[in-house]
């Protein structure tokens, strides 16, 4: 489609602008503040970068793990043999979603100790459902006529899955992964409670120490990381969705 390239990317420019404004505002505001020694211990490039890196790493690892789990599981749940139990499985997982993330994080820690792995498991537990649900809906919404056309042409079941069902499910699956990433970035702030670091550390420090600059710095960074990840997800969605599918 001519001119489609432009429309495809329009509307994605606003997000980075918001993030840049937030970060710029934060920097200007911090420059005007007299930081005491406690505040300076947190608000320095090294520490902030480390916390940001931890946060991103945790989120990305968890999202990848979710993709690796949810895709095969979702494909399995849409095969004829299991198709009927899929709604039941999703409902059960949906009830599980009502358990608060903070509680799960703490319980896992009390049982398995502190650390990155426990935090990652909690993240995965929380972001699995949206992806799984979207894989199931994504494949489920593929027009049965297309599947029949594929079978009628002599494609094997596997070929129909790879050439028709999965490509057509990509947009919905990617939306699910993007949601998972956003949820992950949120749950990752709670990793501080189980000693897994991340930007939650800075926020909690700010609250505990009663230091507004620390609190605001942590919060703004945390918001920016989440917004940037969501934006990256949106870009990936546009880039990876097959053309010809709206």
């Amino acid at each position: 489609m001519s001119g489609g390239g432009r429309g495809r990317w329009a509307g994605l420019a606003a997000r980075p602008l918001v993030v840049a404004l937030l970060l710029g505002g934060l920097w200007l505001w911090l420059r005007g503040q007299e930081l005491d020694s406690i505040e300076r211990r947190t608000i320095n490039a090294d520490y902030l970068l480390r916390a940001t890196r931890e946060h991103l790493w945790l989120t990305v690892v968890a999202t990848l793990a979710v993709a690796a789990l949810a895709l095969p599981l979702g494909v399995l749940l849409t095969r004829p043999a299991l198709r009927r139990v899929a709604p039941g499985v999703l409902t059960v997982l949906g009830v599980g979603q009502a358990v608060p993330a903070y509680g799960v994080m703490v319980l896992l820690t009390l049982r398995f100790g502190v650390g990155f792995r426990v935090a990652a498991v909690a993240l995965v537990a929380y972001s699995l459902l949206p992806v799984l649900r979207n894989v199931v809906t994504g494949i489920g919404q593929v027009d049965p006529a297309l599947v029949e056309a594929g079978r009628g042409m002599g494609m094997s079941r596997a070929a129909v899955l790879w050439r028709i069902e999965l490509p057509l499910a990509v947009p919905v699956v990617l939306t699910g992964l993007r949601t998972a990433m956003v949820i992950g970035a949120g749950v990752a702030t709670l990793a501080t409670f189980v000693g897994a670091g991340g930007l939650g550390d800075i926020i909690i420090n700010g609250i505990k120490l009663g230091r507004t600059p620390v609190l605001v710095t942590g919060s703004v960074l945390c918001a920016c990381v989440a917004l940037a990840l969501d934006w990256a997800g949106a870009v990936a969605e546009r880039a990876l969705s097959p053309r010809g599918v709206s």
Partner: peptide
């Protein structure tokens, strides 16, 4: 839609952190 999407994206703890300077603990 844009506004709700931003709110949904910002982690709860970060939102709390941004509110505390205004409305306190």
């Amino acid at each position: 839609q844009a506004g709700t999407s931003v709110v949904f994206t910002v982690p709860s703890l970060a939102l709390v952190g941004l509110l505390i300077p205004v409305t306190g603990l």
